[in-house]
Nucleic acid binder design. Structure first.
Length: 478
RNA sequence: CGGGGUGUGGCCCAGUUGGUCUAAGGCGUCUGGUUUGGGACCAGAAGAUCGAGAGUUCAAAUCUCUCCACCCCGACCA
């Protein structure tokens, strides 16, 4: 019998957005709340985020950044201080006008990001060059009232980390931008997701930034997901919020600032990169349950024997793996197989009287839906290798897919009929990007470092025919 | 904000030329029994002010008006 005869998940090829929604629902990751655009993250979905978060937080803290927490409310006037910044965020702000039973004289914005909330305080904390660098990070919720919400990828409220740092010099600040970008890339690789990292175009950069770098991910429908951004803000915000220090030279200087953010949209990326027609596929690193044991029995005697055997295996690996026995009575093994496959559990151990009698286990791996039988004595070693193999296999599959779906084009007439991204030589002129967006709903995604250093493959821009500056990647995006 | 669509038990949805709707079916839930190596079966049960309000009518899930909410496609989106 074929897997999933009773299908509750739409096939990817049939309708990818519906498939995505089906997986989010069926794997019990999240659901929509009664507030438009705001999600309820269910325990299984939240755990995935927390595993990702723990990994990234470790990288950040190990690098010497300290965690901090600022209020959710920002005086609206603070937000309005930086012109580009407020223009970028004004349409999507949620504003508190009443509190304590009264209309507020000074309206409060719910932070869409915390530059404006933090930098006035930074100005107080920073007096001398000896106070630098100041490197703080917060894990917080932010609110952006986007027109079109999407589960995980663009909810009105979302969880993320935002780092806000101040350096004495531009060089130090720019070096950190790249370092953080590396952390983001590594965190995606922890999730077995390949990324394309580099610089954003002028029109795609962060409102108020001098330069934005990004990690871009390709979903299985060929669209791009911006997986995290690291911005060099220059002294733009420092000048507005008076973030300055007395240098060794006895003069005042504005601080060079960075901000960088990574959100739970990474969970959305995870689903869209690894998921298949049977649901979620999780790499072991971020699987809330890495191994599920499904006991199989017909009668009470077998049940006792099988459960005891299963418990022994579980206690052997407890602490080493996130492991669970599905002891639910009344559900058939087939039901349980499917249940955990939809949820993407990477490894399943099927244990019945056969296995118990022969001191073996049947192992199912979700990354390629295959089964094998392994002797109990070899299990520990086997699992160790298997986990690595599953991670590697998911990563390679994703990388192969991405590579196959990046097409080189020389003129924009070649865009149609393409799924995925394309690479082209571009003039970097904002007007051409606007044209591209209007005609094909595509924009530049990223300028890779190797392309930044090299001359463009084609001297002419694929849109305007003017002089091309670099080869860029373009795509539709979430 | 433009275009389209949908609101009926927890979920999916039938019914929408007004009457036979005391609202059908499937999934799920509960009870009992038989089952259990790839989404079990039988029997029974509970669960719905048909998105809200007003109106037309002998009679409204069904027609009219107003409102609300959500979804999809755009625009928007560090």
């Amino acid at each position: 019998m074929a897997l999933n005869e009773k299908r509750t998940i739409t096939k990817q090829a049939l309708d990818f957005p519906v498939w995505y929604q089906d997986v989010v629902r069926e794997a019990e990751l999240a659901e929509n709340s009664e507030v438009r655009g705001c999600g309820i993250i269910r325990p299984y979905g939240l755990k995935i985020w927390e595993l990702i978060k723990a990994e990234l937080n470790k990288k950040i803290e190990d690098d010497g950044v300290e965690n901090v927490y600022f209020p959710i409310f920002v005086p609206l006037e603070n937000l309005e201080a930086e012109k580009d910044h407020v223009e970028g965020f004004a349409p999507e702000l949620a504003i508190v006008t009443h509190a304590g039973g009264e209309e507020l004289t000074n309206k409060l914005a719910i932070r869409p990001t915390s530059e404006a909330a933090m930098y006035k305080t930074y100005a107080r904390w920073i007096q001398s060059y000896k106070d630098l660098p100041l490197r703080l990070n917060q894990w917080a919720n932010v609110v952006r009232w986007e027109k079109r919400p999407r589960a995980f990828l663009r909810w009105s409220e979302f969880l993320w980390q935002e780092g806000h740092t101040v350096f004495a010099t531009e060089d130090e600040a720019r070096a950190e931008v790249d370092k953080i970008l590396g952390f983001y890339k590594d965190t995606y690789e922890f999730m077995a997701i390949p990324t394309f990292c580099g610089q954003k175009s002028e029109s795609e950069k962060f409102a108020g930034a001098v330069m934005t770098k990004t990690v871009e991910v390709m979903a299985r429908d060929g669209k791009a997901i911006q997986g995290g951004t690291s911005h060099y803000l220059g002294t733009n915000f420092a000048e507005v919020f008076d973030v300055k220090y007395l240098g060794a030279d006895g003069e005042f200087h504005f601080g060079h600032q960075n901000s960088w953010g990574f959100a739970w949209r990474s969970v959305g990326a995870l689903i869209m990169v690894h998921g298949d027609d049977n649901g979620l596929r999780l790499p072991p690193n971020v699987a809330p349950i890495q191994i599920v044991i499904v006991p199989i029995y017909k009668d009470e005697a077998a049940r006792e024997q099988v459960l005891e055997y299963s418990e022994n295996i579980k206690s052997t690996f407890k602490g080493k793996y996130r492991i669970k026995i599905d002891i639910r009575d009344g559900q058939t093994p087939g039901f349980k197989f499917n249940y955990w496959e939809v949820r993407g559990v990477p490894v399943r151990l099927e244990i019945g009287p056969k296995e118990a009698n022969e001191q073996k286990v049947t192992i199912f791996r979700r990354d390629n839906d295959s089964k094998e039988v392994v002797a109990l004595v070899d299990l520990e070693k086997h699992l160790e290798e298997l986990m690595k193999e599953i991670h590697q296999n998911l990563y390679s599959q994703a990388l192969d897919f991405a590579k196959k779906n990046i097409h080189r084009i020389e003129s924009w007439d070649e865009i149609k009929d393409q799924t995925g991204w394309f690479e082209a030589s571009w003039s970097e002129d904002a007007a051409t990007e606007k044209l591209l967006k209007e005609k094909y709903s595509m924009v530049s995604r990223v300028l890779l470092p190797e392309n930044e250093k090299a001359a463009p493959k084609n001297k002419k821009c694929f849109i305007s025919g003017e002089t091309a500056k670099h080869d860029w990647l373009f795509a539709k995006s979430y």
